[in-house]
């Protein structure tokens, strides 16, 4: 690591990660939404994030199973985790009255999934865009082995 200690560098990295959300909050103008509605949204977002990521992991494991002689045990384990998490999540949301104005917790799940589409698509586009921006600095200029480090 160049010139700075590891804790300082790690602190800078955490600050950099929080830079975007901080800007989003600082630049927001006008009335803020109610805290209770945000709490309901947050609980549902955690639930939807869990279910979608579990489903993605199962599909990934099944698709890549060819490389490992199609093991059934971890796929079964992940399906059990998904099913268990889904049922427990629905029960928790229902018992804590976190389904808002929807007719059922399942309806709320699908509504929340559509509601989270901008977040998913925004993150999905931001990742390649940021990597390409980084690549502009890494590859646009002539690389000379004898040249000293530069910034």
């Amino acid at each position: 690591m160049a010139e700075v200690s590891r804790p300082v560098a790690l602190g800078a990295l955490i600050c950099a990660l929080l830079f975007g959300p901080a800007m989003m909050l600082l630049l927001a103008e006008g009335p803020m939404p109610e805290k209770e509605a945000m709490g309901v949204g947050l609980a549902n977002d955690v639930f939807v994030g869990y279910v979608l990521a579990s489903l993605g992991m199962i599909l990934l494991l099944v698709a890549y199973g060819d490389n490992r002689d199609r093991p059934a045990a971890p796929v079964f384990g992940l399906i059990m985790l998904l099913a268990g998490g889904f049922l427990v999540g629905l029960w928790l949301l229902q018992s804590a009255d976190f389904i808002g104005e929807s007719s059922s917790s399942l309806a709320r799940f699908f509504t929340e999934m559509i509601h989270l589409a901008p977040v998913g698509l925004g993150l999905a586009l931001a990742a390649p865009v940021s990597l390409l921006i980084a690549a502009v600095g890494l590859r646009t200029f002539a690389l000379d082995e004898a040249e000293p480090p530069r910034s």
């Binding site: 950099a16 931001a126 990742a127 940021s130 980084a134």
Partner: peptide
């Protein structure tokens, strides 16, 4: 989200 995430990732 796109601009916030780009900002965080680039930083």
């Amino acid at each position: 989200v796109l601009l916030g995430a780009c900002s965080s990732l680039c930083a």
